[in-house]
């Protein structure tokens, strides 16, 4: 019996040589260790072995079994490793082929500009309030100190809708809508679409975006100096800290004193170029101290309250920032243009 076992072992080991193939190994496993294998057969024939020898034989069988199993496992491991190695060299992709992309959209540059502006205003303590596009004469004009037939109305060619309604020509209606409802202190920005009767062209669009801002408090608490402070801070945050800011007197019916705000030309930095008509300055927004008549229109006593307001044209500012000159780009929605903008509200350079 011992000899027989030894024979099984040595034959199996011989067949389980280092270069044994997958199928040779499997053959040995089935023949020796399988359910009807040689070792199983010997265990079955154990009752014919004298009783006193049985433990030793049993032990030997187990020993051989363990040895062969270990050997098989080692060989299989090696083979697997070799196969993996082979497959790794064989399964080489052309990594320069395109990936299967998950699509990703792009934000419109007007949205980006608005969001970037509002983020700055919000951080400066301005509440963001949405107001309406369809307005009445009172909220768009009369309350903002545009008397009927006043030439100032011609600065803003209006779309009328009938029933006394019109499309707002500026976001300044936000001042009236908010102040009618609330009392100072107020620090508010109102973004939104505005409409004027201009054909879509390189320079103009019948629909465009503005941001109106205003800050109102007790008389003397909010002055023209604060207007300058807030707008300078905003413009430097938006355009860069080295931006020069200039305030010059102007006229808007709803502010007094009024000021146009210029920044140093983004293209030439103030040296003078074609874009800034060689002045070195670019007009960027209108502002002023809220006119006493506007405060009266919303039921505030101008002796009690005062504040400033400003209006910022988003589209033109976006054009300046992007260094392009054609307003139509914003409404054509050419993916070759839009595709250059990010899918987040990050600032664009």
């Amino acid at each position: 019996m011992r000899e027989q076992l030894e024979q099984i072992r040595s034959r199996a080991l011989a067949e389980l040589a280092a270069e044994a193939t997958e199928s040779a190994i499997e053959d040995v496993r089935v023949r020796v260790l399988g359910r009807a294998g040689e070792l199983t057969e010997i265990m079955r024939g154990m009752r014919e072995v004298p009783a006193q020898e049985r433990p030793a034989i049993g032990q030997l069988v187990n020993q051989i079994k363990t040895e062969l199993e270990a050997r098989i496992e080692a060989l299989q491991g090696k083979l697997k490793e070799a196969a993996l190695e082979r497959s790794l060299t064989e399964a080489r992709l052309d990594v320069t082929l395109p990936g299967a992309k998950i699509p990703r959209g792009h934000l419109h540059p007007i949205t980006l500009t608005i969001e970037n502006m509002l983020r700055i205003f919000n951080a400066m303590g301005f509440e963001i309030v949405a107001t309406r596009d369809i307005e009445d004469d009172f909220h768009n004009f009369a309350a903002l100190n545009f008397p009927p037939d006043h030439p100032a109305r011609e600065m803003q060619d209006t779309f009328f809708l009938g029933g006394g309604l019109l499309l707002r020509t500026h976001t300044s209606n936000g001042q009236i809508r908010v102040m009618e409802q609330r009392r100072p202190p107020l620090a508010i920005v109102c973004p939104g679409n505005c409409y004027r009767r201009d054909e879509l062209s390189v320079r103009a669009s019948p629909m465009f975006s503005q941001i109106e801002g205003f800050m109102v408090d007790r008389a003397g608490r909010i002055t023209m100096a604060h207007l300058k402070g807030v707008l300078t801070e905003f413009l430097r945050a938006f355009f860069g800290s080295d931006t020069a800011v200039r305030f010059r007197a102007s006229f808007f019916p709803f502010t007094e004193p009024s000021a146009e705000v210029d920044i140093s030309c983004l293209l030439c930095g103030g040296k003078g170029c074609r874009i800034c008509k060689h002045s070195g300055w670019t007009e960027i927004l209108g502002s002023g101290m809220i006119h006493p008549n506007v405060l009266r229109a919303v039921g505030y006593d101008p002796a009690e309250y005062q504040g400033f307001a400003f209006g910022l044209g988003v589209d033109r500012t976006a054009l300046l920032r992007l260094g392009v000159e054609d307003m139509r780009l914003f409404f054509e929605n050419d993916v070759r243009f839009l595709g250059q903008f990010p899918a987040s509200n990050e600032r664009f350079a």
Binding site: E127, D217, I222, M224, A225, H226, G229
Partner: peptide, 26 residues
């Protein structure tokens, strides 16, 4: 009065904030 000498005469100042609460959004 302001425009005669140019608005540069007016200093730029930060307004007093009455509240430090974060500004709301619609």
């Amino acid at each position: 009065v302001a425009r005669l000498n140019g608005l540069e005469e007016i200093p730029a100042a930060a307004p007093d904030r009455r509240s430090a609460a974060p500004a709301a959004e619609d």
